[in-house]
Design a binder for these strands. Structure first.
Lengths: 213, 213
DNA sequence: GCCGAACCGTAACGTACGGTACGCATCTGC
DNA sequence: GCAGATGCGTACCGTACGTTACGGTTCGGC
């Protein structure tokens, strides 16, 4: 397991700096990892010198960009609600659907691509950051729901981690790797909804408490 | 979906050329995408001129390397056997275990990394090749088994593709993306066996024919 | 033994790009 | 208004690396 790679959201970024990072992010989505400092500078209408003063070097810029995007994705957790089978199902479907939307988004694909590339030659911990704000953040938000489901007698599992990973697999299946490898997977809103429902049903079939009288 | 990206295994590669590609592959595993032509030449004890004569340019070399590895992975299909629930379970577990071993291998990780990187800026179709010899090859080999299972009344599903993708998700879960992103996932032989068994059980729970009398 | 082809080792070339330096405009506090 | 700071635009430097060129060596055919 990688180290936590704590993200300090309030890294005291000025408005201008955020704008620059947004530009870098957009460029990253368009160009992939082969964006140049000059291109970023031009796109952000700033000088390269400023880039270097603010972010140190190229890797620093990439890091800041990824963290910046990560800090934006911070979503609110599902609030504790009256838990019955209906609301649990709805919650799970929502998680599944949200996750599918995320991993199929252009920016997620781009970010994961550069993180995967950089994970090869361990210059920085982009992989850790992406993982932390993707797969691990999802786990952290979903596990309480699973635990609550177990508490309420709706779910039955030994280990929340294992249950989560199974849910993760049922939802994602081959989608992420295919997208990362450039396959054009058809993922309209409708199919996402259907897939989320199917994954949830499967998950409940596997981990739903046996209500056998 | 990407085009088939047919692999012509017998691309008339001489012994020497294969040796060169093996060297390139080893280097790719060690160094990732940032291998240099000089490094390959040195490792393979050949001249750069030869490299260029044989493979055109850097991308050509990478392509040839990936295809070369792909051609080696061509595994025999499970032969038609007497199908009962026991042998079906064994087959599925074997597929799962093989697949986990593949995606956690150094060369698979390295190859997927470069393919993902290149998929960003569509210079070549490395992504298609890897996909074709990974996920799609697996489907092609597994689907007949699933169909046979249905024929034998052991499995119950509408669409073989959907069933396969669910199996794929149950087996792979978060393993591949975590490995690609540099997370050190613990995958000893024992855990692989356990995971394969668990995935198979889950799959059978979802798609096993209801033997309700 | 001789010729050409294939190939090795290495030197050389061109370029793209990361990183730095400098001139000028704009803004802020006084 | 003015001094200093901040930042834009751009020219510049150094280097890494893809690509090419070339001399020397081995080898098969005659």
């Amino acid at each position: 397991m990688l180290q936590p790679a704590e993200i300090d959201t309030s890294e005291t970024l000025t408005e201008r700096q955020q704008a620059v990072l947004d530009a870098a992010l957009r460029l990253l989505v368009e160009e992939g990892d082969n964006l140049t400092m000059t291109a970023v500078a031009r796109r952000a209408s700033c000088s390269k010198e400023t880039l270097y003063k603010w972010f140190g070097d190229r890797d620093g810029l990439l890091n800041a960009t990824v963290q910046w995007q990560a800090s934006k994705v911070r979503v609110a957790s599902v609030d504790r609600e009256r838990l019955d089978i209906g609301s649990l199902t709805a919650s799970l479907e929502r998680f599944a659907s949200d996750w599918l939307k995320v991993i199929s988004s252009d920016t997620s694909i781009a970010l994961n691509r550069v993180a995967v590339s950089h994970a090869g030659s361990g210059k920085d911990d982009l992989g850790a950051i992406v993982l932390q704000n993707g797969r691990f953040a999802l786990a952290k938000r979903l596990k309480p729901v699973l635990e609550a489901g177990r508490q309420a007698g709706l779910l039955d599992f030994e280990d929340a981690e294992t249950a989560f990973r199974t849910f993760f697999g049922l939802v994602g299946r081959d989608v992420q790797i295919r997208l990362l490898l450039g396959d054009r997977v058809e993922l309209t809103g409708a199919t996402i909804g259907g897939d989320a429902a199917r994954a949830t049903q499967h998950f409940l079939a596997l981990f739903g408490a046996k209500t056998g009288s």
